[in-house]
């Protein structure tokens, strides 16, 4: 069986750190390097923060997190059953944000710190973000 874990928790700010560190621990067990883990932490933090801030306006809902080992690394999925994103292409643009205190860099960091990145969203049904991170090949002779 492939190594994986699933986690569900309320969309609260304190759970951003919980999700981030849980994925980082999983990645460490798979042999990711510290710099790779630092990038994974930022990407996960952005995806989960988006759920907390945007998915359930004025309410609390569930953050869904799944992490699975792949042949060359890790697949991370963050999903919610919130309001969804009206225009995914617009949301992915740098500096676009519906919140003036946010910089609109969430998607930029998710995309930059993962090797493959996909967003699926349906207004009124929720959003699913999938990020793939490849493990650096061990140095020759290591």
């Amino acid at each position: 069986m492939t190594q994986y874990f699933e986690l569900a928790c309320p969309s609260r700010p304190e759970n951003v750190g919980l999700c981030r560190v849980t994925v980082a621990t999983f990645a460490a067990n798979l042999g990711f390097t510290l710099p790779e883990i630092e990038e994974i932490k930022v990407a996960v933090s952005e995806a989960v923060s988006n759920v907390v801030v945007h998915a359930y306006p004025g309410a609390e809902g569930l953050i869904g997190l799944r992490c699975e080992e792949s042949a060359d690394g890790l697949v991370i999925s963050v999903h919610d059953k919130g309001v969804g994103i009206e225009d995914v292409a617009k949301a992915r643009q740098a500096s676009f944000s519906t919140d003036p205190e946010r910089m609109g860099l969430g998607f930029v960091f998710m995309e930059s710190f993962s090797d493959e990145f996909r967003v699926e969203s349906q207004p009124g049904k929720g959003t699913r973000i999938e990020m793939r991170k490849r493990r650096e090949a061990p140095a020759e002779g290591a």
Binding site: V16, R20, K41, V42, S45, E46, S49, D99, P100, E101, R102, M103, G104, L105, G106, F109
Partner: peptide
Amino acid sequence: RFLDSSGLGVLLG
């Protein structure tokens, strides 16, 4: 030890 766009937003604001 950790900074993401939420922290950056506070700094820029």
